[in-house]
Structures are given as structure tokens and as C-alpha cells.
């Protein structure tokens, strides 16, 4: 894969990174299939170039970016982030990308903008998971953040991992990374970023609102209806006896940076 020119960024996790093989072969990316091996196995035909990403909606300067021009325009940083999946497993991933805030700042959000809506690609011909009726989500996959969450310095648009261009199965060519939220908030293969006034619909919330909230902040005290969120399985820790389980931290350990965003909010209700 193509190597990216990256410098180390802030917020480096202290944990050991998950092996590249596991980061690229254990993925939830339903556009390619339900099984965690499907994205690696079935995404070879996906064409991540050419690609455009549009920034639009309530902004003074909307723009359609060519992905390679965007990557050239943004200084890339490596950020070693913990990732906690809602399914109670976790990884530690060295992402390469730039803060979403720098992209949004260039578009100059209007005063009326309060949320950011993201939209993923729809390409049934290249994405087998989008062809099946029964197990299908509604496409395109959509996600959203409050504007202050989107502008937070931790919130990243990733275009690579481990110093190389983002593999298809990890959401090429550009994906969202919000390390204090469950992984499903990290929408992949983004085509459109829209600033809006009211809270946008999000895919998993529409699918099952009881299990997946809009905020989806990592919270060991608010259980998923089917399992406890108090602890997590560490991916790639070794076989059965590798000791691969640890306690889950509030906001996935990023509370110091983000707890202020939710002052006065009941996080049990706003899960």
C-alpha cells in the first residue's frame, strides 16, 4: 500500500497497538457483509479512487474535495487511539489523518449550524452487503455528531493507518474516528458531510433505537440490552488464555478531554 507522510500527533494512547493483521481482518463494515472477515475478503474490487468528498449545508464555503487534493492540503498526524466497539471488544489503532475541525473550519459553518451529518457511499456493484435484502441496513449508512463534538480536537478524519493509505476494509478512502464513542459512530467511506440545524438520523439508531443511541458515548455504567458494557475483550491478546479482558473506562478513557461536552446531561437517558 501507499505510504503516507505523517508526523506524530497529540493524544497518544499508552497501550500497545493491536497488530495490523487484526486491525485489517476483524471489521464491522456491513456494506461488505455481516461477518467480521467479510470486509477483508470481499472489498478487493472496491474502488476508493477517484473519490470526492463534499462539505455542504449550513456553511459559507461549500466545497467538493478530490480525496488526494484533500490529503495533500491537510497536514497528516498519527494518533494512537483506543477503539471500543459496542459489542464489548476493543483495539488500539494508529490512525493517520487530520482533525475534522480543520476541514470544517475551511468551510466556515454558519451560526445556524448545530449538527454535522455524514453519509457513506452506496455502490451495490462493489459492495456485496448492499445487495442482500434480508440482513441489510438501510443504505446509505448515515451518522451524525453535535457540532461541538465534531469540532473537538480528538475527532479525526482518518485516511490511513499504520502509516499507510487506508485499506478498503477499514473505510477507504476517508472515515470518521471519534475515540470516546462506540465504533459504529465511525462512519466509513464518507462521501458527504453536511452541516445542519437539527439532529440528523443515524443508521443504527433507526435500526434499533433501544440498543443504539445518538450519542453512543462509551459508558461502562449503561449496559447494552443484551450484554454488560462494564468490561471489554481485548482483540489480538492471544488465545483463550491470553488474559484478553479489561475494565471499560468512562468515555473510553478520554473523559478528561470530553466530559465537559456533556455537562448537566443525563447520560443514562442520552445514551
Amino acid at each position: 500500500a501507499q505510504t503516507l507522510s505523517v508526523r506524530p500527533g497529540p493524544f497518544q494512547a499508552a497501550e500497545r497497538p493491536t497488530p495490523l493483521q487484526d486491525v485489517t481482518h476483524y471489521n464491522n463494515f456491513y456494506e461488505f457483509g455481516l461477518d467480521k472477515g467479510d470486509p477483508a475478503a470481499l472489498s478487493a474490487r472496491f474502488a476508493a479512487r477517484p473519490w470526492t468528498l463534499s462539505v455542504e449545508g449550513l456553511v459559507a464555503r461549500p466545497r467538493v474535495w478530490d480525496i488526494d487534493q484533500l490529503i495533500a492540503a491537510m497536514p497528516l498526524e498519527e494518533r494512537l487511539y483506543r477503539m471500543r466497539c459496542v459489542e464489548a471488544w476493543s483495539m488500539v489503532i494508529p490512525w493517520d489523518g487530520f482533525p475534522l475541525a480543520s476541514l470544517l473550519a475551511q468551510a466556515e459553518p454558519l451560526g445556524s449550524a448545530r449538527y454535522v451529518a455524514f453519509e457513506s457511499v452506496v455502490r451495490p456493484a462493489q459492495m456485496p452487503g448492499q445487495r442482500n435484502g434480508l440482513d441489510s441496513l438501510a443504505w446509505p449508512y448515515v451518522e451524525g455528531l453535535r457540532l461541538d463534538e465534531a469540532m473537538h480536537p480528538l475527532t479525526l478524519l482518518a485516511v490511513g493507518l499504520y502509516g499507510e493509505i487506508l485499506p478498503n476494509q477499514n473505510g477507504a478512502p476517508v472515515r470518521l474516528v471519534v475515540p470516546w464513542k462506540y465504533g459504529f459512530k465511525g462512519i466509513k467511506s464518507i462521501t458527504r458531510i453536511r452541516l445542519v440545524e437539527s439532529r440528523p438520523p443515524t443508521t443504527w439508531n433507526q435500526m434499533n433505537a433501544q440498543e443504539y443511541g445518538f450519542f453512543a458515548n462509551v459508558n461502562p455504567e449503561v449496559d447494552h440490552p443484551r450484554w454488560s458494557q462494564a468490561s471489554e475483550r481485548i482483540i489480538g491478546a492471544g488465545g483463550f488464555f491470553g488474559g484478553g479482558r479489561k475494565k471499560t473506562l468512562m468515555f473510553n478513557g478520554y473523559g478528561e478531554q470530553v466530559a465537559g461536552l456533556y455537562g448537566g446531561m443525563d447520560l443514562r437517558r442520552n445514551y
Binding site: Y26, G37, R233, I235, G238, G239, F240, G242, G244
Partner: peptide
């Protein structure tokens, strides 16, 4: 599968797979 899992051959999330 027990043999695989004990020898780290059940992939990255062996307990869940088993």
C-alpha cells in the same frame, strides 16, 4: 476449536468465536 483457541489459532477474538 478448543485446540485452536488454546493455541491462538481462532483469530483475534477467540473466546467470542468459540
Amino acid at each position: 476449536y478448543f485446540w485452536y483457541g488454546a493455541h491462538d489459532a481462532l483469530g483475534p477474538d477467540p473466546v467470542n468465536v468459540f
